[in-house]
Design a protein around this nucleic acid. Structure first.
Lengths: 160, 160
DNA sequence: ATGGATAGTTGAAAATGTCAACGATTTGTT
DNA sequence: AACAAATCGTTGACATTTTCAACTATCCAT
């Protein structure tokens, strides 16, 4: 990143609008870094026919935490109906499987198949490289700090 | 934030899926905090009939930097056609004005009117309060650090 | 001055987001 | 035990957003 933030290197150096007060706005900073990262992420994942969304679902399915679709929806900030579509597609590709919840038979627990697990391992490598690209301008320590602060903002000091 | 991250307080304490490895993924953290913040931001701005997008455009128009629509599009990571729609609406409401570029008559420079400036001042207060809400779990120093790291990731050490 | 690029604009197509309804199940109340 | 209310996944409709290809007017380089 940093060197040329997504097509705004039109004039050579960084963008003149960086001086605007919106560059101090958290929402803007999150949106912009997220947008820039999404491009790289999706590009990296396209090799595996995955997108950020399906990649996220696959990770959760592979986590061993036996998440239900509802839990995934809450956690990923998505509408439950979007999870249906994502799981449908991954299931059709044989990467995840649905199973009825043990205590609650309304719920569907989504788990990764061996094939899904294998694909995920490869995809994670590519995604990691994309993330490193985004964090190019930060030292290793700073990158860790940034992620720690994001986690803390979301879940408090205790968060993962 | 922190206390109850957007409907995922279903079971009382934080979400069990926080333990999944995706909680270490930068893209996910950015998306999630951004999603949570957007809700609060848009809620705060709705009082002024603004959304995050139009608010951003209004800020840039009011910055004194005389941005063209193309520069706004690049800077906000939006398609130029989306800027057209946003400026159209703000112009219709008398909050901004279009002027032909001085050196380049193809370009349109967008500036805030006095009315737009006044509205922005109020809206900025509400947006600031929403941002403080999002950063609830962080100390003042940590919040500043988070924003500094985001800026550095985007524009390098020199960035605004 | 001619050709090729760029700014803004328009409109269409594709992708996403939002929401209400439904059957199957669970949970709470009596 | 029986009933009412709530919840889970699913479907489908609808709105919003994104993406992209044209088009005109203008700029820039040769």
């Amino acid at each position: 990143m940093t060197i040329e933030t997504q097509g705004e290197q039109r004039n050579g150096q960084g963008h003149k609008l960086v001086a605007a007060s919106i560059s101090q706005d958290l929402g803007f900073l999150l949106a912009k870094l997220h947008a820039a990262g999404s491009v790289l992420n999706n590009r990296a994942l396209s090799e595996f026919d995955l997108k950020e969304r399906s990649y996220s679902v696959l990770i959760l399915a592979n986590s061993g935490l036996e998440p239900t679709q509802r839990e995934m929806a809450d956690f990923l900030s998505l509408d439950p109906s979007q999870i249906v579509a994502l799981v449908d597609e991954l299931e059709k590709r044989g990467l995840v499987a649905r199973a009825a919840g043990k205590q609650d038979r309304r719920a569907k627990i989504v788990t990764a198949t061996a094939k899904g697990s294998r694909l995920l391992a490869q995809a994670a490598g590519a995604a990691g490289r994309a993330e490193a690209d985004v964090l190019d301008g930060l030292s290793g320590e700073e990158a860790a700090q940034l992620k720690a602060l994001l986690r803390k903002a979301l879940w408090g000091a205790l968060g993962a």
